[in-house]
């Protein structure tokens, strides 16, 4: 299994292709397999060196007891760029992975060439959102309720609340919950619940709305047509200097699963434009020197 060490932790990763670097960052409770299932890894590696990794606490990476704010995770991302010898990279982040991408871009703008933000919501922008718009959340809540776990609208963003509820189920109810909500990686989720991940990811972690608005790297905000976080997409479009918004038809929050074809095509197009613009600015720079 391929592992590397960064920031004193062991990370599981997959890497394919050659060329400028693209880093893929999954969301909370997810893992790198999302990028293989939606074929982002396979498609993008035709033109780029693509690296997908399991965030700390997730997949097969090490599970430290604390350090899960977007600042910590952005630090891991930048640490991995060092390990892979990447001076800079385009970063594609899904959900909280998008928050990590933006945080890395404001901490080290020279290392992040561009960002693709797949349906992120930001703790600092929580006030913009309304969970009742989230059809997926409602369905999940109903299934959980039938299995004996009450998840309320006011705690939709709070992983630690969710962990607490699930952790105290007895054997039979736990089995029912697992069957009802279809979480084959429940053990992994329970392992994460022993860390500060739930608490850390509901706080701003230094990424205030003002700081988000200072992000100047080219950005593609990719939101599902029925995303619960369209208010965040409007904020990004209005406040980021260099941000385009694209809608993934038919998708809710999980576009990589719900419409992988459009999702990957939109990313591919954005990266190709970044590449072309990079070449143009290089030519323009060379012409100036001549």
């Amino acid at each position: 299994m391929p592992f590397v060490h960064a920031n004193g932790l062991k990370f599981h990763y997959q890497q394919a292709g050659a060329g400028p670097d693209v880093m893929l960052v999954h969301g909370l409770t997810g893992d790198l397999s999302i990028w293989l299932l939606c074929q982002a890894m396979q498609t993008l590696s035709a033109s780029w060196r693509v690296t997908a990794f399991d965030l700390r606490g997730h997949g097969y990476s090490e599970v430290p007891p604390r350090g899960y704010t977007s600042a910590d995770l952005a630090g891991d991302l930048l640490g991995l760029l060092d390990v892979f010898g990447a001076e800079n990279a385009h970063v594609i982040g899904h959900s909280f992975g998008g928050v990590v991408a933006v945080h890395a871009a404001v901490l080290a703008p020279e290392r992040i060439s561009s960002v693709v933000l797949s349906d992120p919501y930001f703790p600092a922008l929580r006030h913009l959102e309304n969970a009742s718009r989230w059809g997926h959340w409602e369905a999940f809540r109903q299934e959980a309720l039938e299995a004996g776990v009450e998840l309320s609208d006011e705690h939709w963003y709070d992983l630690s609340h969710f962990f607490d509820q699930v952790q105290h189920l007895d054997g039979e109810r736990m089995l029912k919950f697992r069957q009802a909500v279809g979480l084959p990686g429940l053990n992994r989720l329970m392992r994460l619940s022993t860390t500060t991940c739930g608490v850390d990811t509901r706080v701003e972690g230094g990424l205030s709305s003002e700081l988000i608005a200072t992000m100047k790297r080219p950005a593609l905000a990719l939101y599902g047509e029925f995303s619960p976080f369209l208010a965040t997409s409007e904020f990004l479009e209005e406040n980021l200097e260099n941000c385009e918004v694209a809608i993934v038809p038919g998708a809710k929050h999980r576009a990589p699963e719900e419409n992988s074809e459009s999702f990957v095509r939109l990313i591919e197009g954005f990266l190709a434009r970044q590449s072309a613009q990079g070449t143009e600015s290089l030519i323009s720079h060379q012409n100036t020197l001549c």
């Binding site: 997959q14 893992d31 790198l32 397999s33 999302i34 293989l36 399991d54 084959p184 990686g185 992994r188």
Partner: peptide
């Protein structure tokens, strides 16, 4: 088997 997609990768 109760495994997850990341287990398939590994």
């Amino acid at each position: 088997l109760g495994l997850a997609s990341i287990d398939a990768v590994v």
